[in-house]
Simulated assay, not measured.
Amino acid sequence: MLPESSLRDYRTLLAAVGAIAQAIAAGDADEAKAQYQPLPSQFQILLAAMPPPLQQSLQRYNTEIYKEIQLLEADLMRWQIAKQAATQQARSQQIQQRCDRIASYIRAILES
């Protein structure tokens, strides 16, 4: 069972990922960027505050979340610079899928 502080932090991350997905769906690059900006540091703070035994038990999920957050940043940049509508749409779908993956990892942690 996760400590209450970790539960709260993971729920905050889940909400932020949802907000990024909503901003992308709305085509709002500024909002997506604003929602993404604190995400990596929030995740690092969450990990630093987690007791070592809990870190070990959740390591595979947290590794995947970390990787996906890093890739999400690259996807957001590519989406913002896309010139053609088809390219922007493809990038938008890619970001939505990445947000869904991050959310699924977080939900798995919250349910464990």
Rank of each mutant, 00 (worst) to 15 (best):
R8C: 03
D9Q: 15
Y10V: 04
T12E: 14
L13R: 00
L13Q: 02
L14R: 12
A15M: 13
A16E: 11
A16I: 06
V17L: 14
G18Q: 11
G18H: 05
A19P: 02
I20Q: 03
A21D: 14
A21Q: 15
Q22G: 03
Q22C: 00
Q22L: 10
A23G: 08
A23K: 02
I24E: 05
A25T: 12
A25L: 06
A25Y: 00
G27P: 07
G27R: 10
D28A: 11
D28S: 12
D28L: 05
A29K: 09
D30T: 10
D30H: 09
E31Q: 13
E31H: 01
A32K: 01
A32N: 04
K33I: 01
Q35I: 00
Q35K: 13
Q35L: 01
Y36E: 08
Y36V: 09
P38T: 08
P38S: 09
L39Y: 06
P40M: 08
S41M: 08
F43W: 15
F43G: 02
Q44D: 13
Q44W: 04
I45F: 02
I45G: 01
L46M: 14
L47H: 07
L47I: 12
L47P: 00
A48K: 13
A49T: 06
A49Y: 00
M50L: 15
P51F: 04
P52E: 12
P52S: 05
P52C: 04
P53K: 07
L54V: 13
Q55N: 05
Q56R: 13
Q56M: 10
S57N: 06
L58W: 00
L58E: 07
Q59N: 09
Q59A: 14
Y61I: 03
T63I: 04
I65G: 01
I65K: 01
Y66K: 12
Y66R: 11
K67V: 09
K67A: 12
E68K: 03
E68S: 08
I69Y: 04
I69D: 04
Q70L: 14
Q70M: 09
Q70T: 10
L71T: 06
L71W: 05
A74E: 11
A74R: 09
A74T: 12
R78A: 14
R78W: 08
R78Y: 09
I81V: 13
I81Q: 13
I81F: 12
I81Y: 13
A82C: 06
A82P: 03
A82E: 08
A82L: 09
A82S: 15
K83F: 08
K83H: 09
Q84M: 11
A86T: 10
Q88F: 07
Q89A: 14
Q89T: 10
A90G: 02
R91H: 12
R91T: 02
S92D: 01
Q93S: 09
Q93Y: 12
Q93R: 13
Q94Y: 09
I95T: 00
I95R: 02
Q96E: 10
Q96Y: 04
Q96H: 10
R98L: 07
R98Y: 00
R98H: 04
C99F: 03
C99Q: 03
D100R: 14
I102Q: 03
I102C: 05
I102E: 03
I102D: 05
A103Y: 00
S104G: 13
S104W: 04
S104P: 01
I106F: 02
A108W: 00
A108S: 15
I109L: 04
I109M: 15
L110C: 06
